[in-house]
Amino acid sequence: MKANKNIGCTVNECKFHSKNDSFCSLDHINIVKHENKATRQETTDCGSFEADK
């Protein structure tokens, strides 16, 4: 997978992790929130995550 140097990522359990570097291989990612109003980092996540099988 080709690393997208614009999207840093340390979640190597993700299917889209570049494996060789700490980057995502997707062209873009979708960020989602867990509350009506996101006020802290902990209330958001990468909605593009898929577990690496």
Rank of each mutant, 00 (worst) to 15 (best):
M1S: 15
M1L: 15
K2T: 15
A3F: 05
A3R: 07
N4C: 02
N4Y: 00
K5W: 14
N6A: 15
N6P: 04
I7W: 07
I7A: 08
I7L: 15
G8Y: 15
G8V: 15
G8E: 14
G8A: 15
C9K: 01
C9N: 08
T10A: 14
T10R: 11
T10L: 12
V11N: 14
V11D: 13
V11Y: 06
N12E: 12
N12G: 08
N12L: 08
N12T: 10
E13M: 09
C14S: 05
C14D: 00
C14K: 00
C14A: 06
K15W: 08
F16S: 03
F16Q: 02
F16L: 03
H17Y: 13
H17F: 14
H17I: 09
S18R: 12
K19W: 09
K19N: 14
K19Q: 15
K19Y: 10
N20G: 14
N20E: 15
D21Q: 15
S22H: 13
F23T: 07
F23N: 12
C24E: 06
C24Y: 02
C24Q: 03
C24V: 04
S25W: 06
L26R: 03
L26D: 00
L26M: 08
D27F: 04
D27E: 13
D27R: 04
H28T: 00
H28M: 04
H28Y: 05
I29N: 02
I31T: 04
I31G: 00
I31K: 00
V32K: 04
V32N: 03
K33E: 04
K33T: 02
K33M: 04
K33Q: 11
K33C: 02
H34Y: 10
H34A: 05
E35A: 12
E35Q: 12
E35V: 14
N36L: 12
K37G: 08
K37I: 10
K37S: 13
T39C: 09
R40A: 14
Q41M: 08
Q41R: 05
Q41P: 05
E42G: 06
T43A: 06
T43R: 05
T43L: 06
T43S: 11
T43V: 06
T44C: 10
T44P: 04
T44M: 11
D45H: 02
D45C: 01
D45Q: 06
D45K: 01
D45I: 00
C46H: 07
C46W: 07
G47T: 02
S48W: 01
S48Y: 03
E50F: 02
A51F: 10
A51S: 08
A51V: 10
D52E: 11
D52T: 00
K53Y: 06
K53F: 07
K53R: 07
K53A: 08
K53E: 10
